[in-house]
Nucleic acid binder design. Sequence first.
DNA 1: TGAAATGTTGGGGCG
DNA 2: ACGCCCCAACATTTC
Length: 484
Amino acid sequence: MSVSPIVVWFRSDLRLASNRALSAAVATGAPLILTYILDDETPAAWKRGAASRWWLDKSLAALSASLETRGATLIFRRGVTGEELPRLVTQSKASAVYFTRCYEPHAVALEDQLKAVFDSAGVVFKRFGGNLLREPEDVRTKTGDVYKVYTPFWKALSADFTPPKPLPPPKAITAFKSALESDNLAAWRLHPSKPDWSGGFGEHWKPGEDGAHEKLQTFLEAAMRSYADDRNRPDRPGTSRLSPHLHFGEISPAQCWIAAQHAAASMPGADKGCETFLKEIVWREFSYTLLYYWPDLPEQPFRRDFAAFPWKSEPAHLAAWQKGMTGYPVVDAGMRELWHTGYMHNRVRMIVASFLIKHLLIPWQAGEAWFWDTLVDADLASNAASWQWVAGSGADAAPYFRIFNPVTQGEKFDPDGTYVRRWVPELTALPNDVIHAPWTAGALTLAAAGVTLGKTYPHPLVDHAAARARALSAYDAVKMASKK
DNA sequence: TGAAATGTTGGGGCG
DNA sequence: ACGCCCCAACATTTC
């Protein structure tokens, strides 16, 4: 007798190890149909951005290749998931669909819709966790409320948390024999063209499960011990750079958690760095919780009184920010790093975000949209929660009046100008004491460095002190609105 | 996971 | 020796 097949539906869990849905499906002994569905229609908003599609292309290729070595094929389908997945089940006469749950509003709605369809058709629709350390439903206050402040969230989550046992990647997979049509991944044209600005991405990243574990190992060996301080230093390789791998589920947060604790146990002096790293993973977790319970987080200020904020619409300023031409070196370095690598150091993300919001008074949603399109780690939850954090409108956000001085921040976290010189080469020859504020340099210094302000490098787009004062008075509108 | 303004203290120059 | 001022260094508060 033939056992009916099971569909394993890959989404944001593009890994073989510690993938509960996959391992559970393998354990049944049934033949498996492994699929990824590219759906550009169902998420009406927040369709995957260009940098993210670049990554997806490479990550799917890696997943497909490692499935091939285990005797299985990844079936590529494109269309409306709510139609395409049932179609695949019908074509293969599958009895079940196994998948890892997601938390974005459109993903939640899709799961609900498919569950209704499959329930009525008698098809098992089996959901697994694993993209988060703990499910949002499981981390609550004593009174059952959702945490809206990070520190108690961290305490509650980490207090009695035992990460699930890691699962090895399945050694072999029993593939469904009958032919099923599959698209050609290359024909999806996820790689940007006209123009292909992703040229430099490849030298910085290795998408896929192997690349994820390499990044993790490098971090544990070389950076975790000094992570607490060095993570703020864009001039040093002090961060893990795991964010895109985590976003696509090439590695799970639990795998990172276990590996970090294991490494710290045999590494004197690494406890602090380890805990700081775990806390960053939990910030991701906190963001997912906020998005899950406040699905309009990407569009609306969490604190509704921020609706009264007098934002400006200045397309020329937004364009200067996007191009890295604001005249503030650390801001421009960050924006150019983003464009060239699909990534930006986290400290610099805070600086450029603060600059867009507070110095230019441009709505945080405009920055969020730009990051969404240009970051390889673009993640709806982290992106929305972090922009709102900087704007001051979020849950447990930075106070609005915390306005970064881009010069001070540069001098503090890039003291030798190494980061600025890397991404803003026209300033390379400036001495360290003016590299973060070229307009303060004397005429001779500028001439000797080959810098002509307004020509080879912009004048500051706005004056810091004036912009700061303007931002503080704009904030008064929010305070006024929240009083009445 | 700030910055700037304001307040306080204490050493040194100087009449 | 003393008072006075200046100001750096640090602490506090305010935005």
